[in-house]
Amino acid sequence: MNTQADPIKSAPQGTGRRLLVVNPNGNADVTRLIARIADKVLPAGTTAHVVNPLGSPHSIQTLADRRQAEPLAIDLLARNRGYDAYVMACFDDIAVHSGRSFLGAPVVCAVEASLSVARLFAPRISIVTTVESMVPGIRTVVDALGASRTCNVRAAGIGVASAAAGGDEVERRLDDTIADARNFDGAGAVILGSGGLAGRASDLSARHGLPVIDSIESAISLGSLAANISL
Rank of each mutant, 00 (worst) to 15 (best):
G55R: 14
V160G: 07
V135W: 12
A122I: 02
S162G: 10
L63A: 14
D92Q: 06
T140M: 04
S98F: 01
R100C: 02
T46H: 08
I74E: 14
R79V: 00
L103Q: 13
I158Y: 07
I37H: 08
V41P: 01
G45Y: 05
H58P: 02
V141P: 02
R100E: 11
V135S: 13
V142P: 00
V160F: 03
A113N: 07
A69C: 03
R149N: 13
A163V: 04
R81F: 00
V131S: 12
V51S: 10
S114N: 07
D65C: 05
L174E: 07
T150I: 01
L145Y: 00
D65K: 08
L63D: 15
A38R: 10
L72D: 10
G146D: 03
L63H: 11
N152P: 00
T150D: 14
I127A: 09
G137F: 04
R81Q: 10
A144K: 05
P123M: 11
L72T: 04
G55D: 13
V160S: 13
I34P: 02
E70C: 08
L120C: 14
D93E: 06
R119C: 09
L72P: 02
S56L: 09
V51P: 03
R81T: 05
E70F: 01
A44N: 06
I158N: 13
A85M: 05
S114V: 08
V96K: 15
V107E: 06
G159N: 10
G104D: 08
R81W: 00
D65G: 05
I37G: 09
A164W: 02
R66W: 01
I60V: 03
I37C: 07
M134H: 15
S101I: 01
G146N: 09
A95M: 04
S98E: 15
P57Y: 14
I74T: 10
V117I: 15
K40D: 13
L115F: 02
I127L: 02
G55K: 14
S126R: 02
S126G: 07
L76P: 00
D75N: 14
G99E: 09
L42G: 08
V111H: 12
I127H: 11
P136V: 03
C109Q: 13
G159T: 11
D92H: 05
T129K: 14
E169W: 04
A161Q: 15
K40G: 04
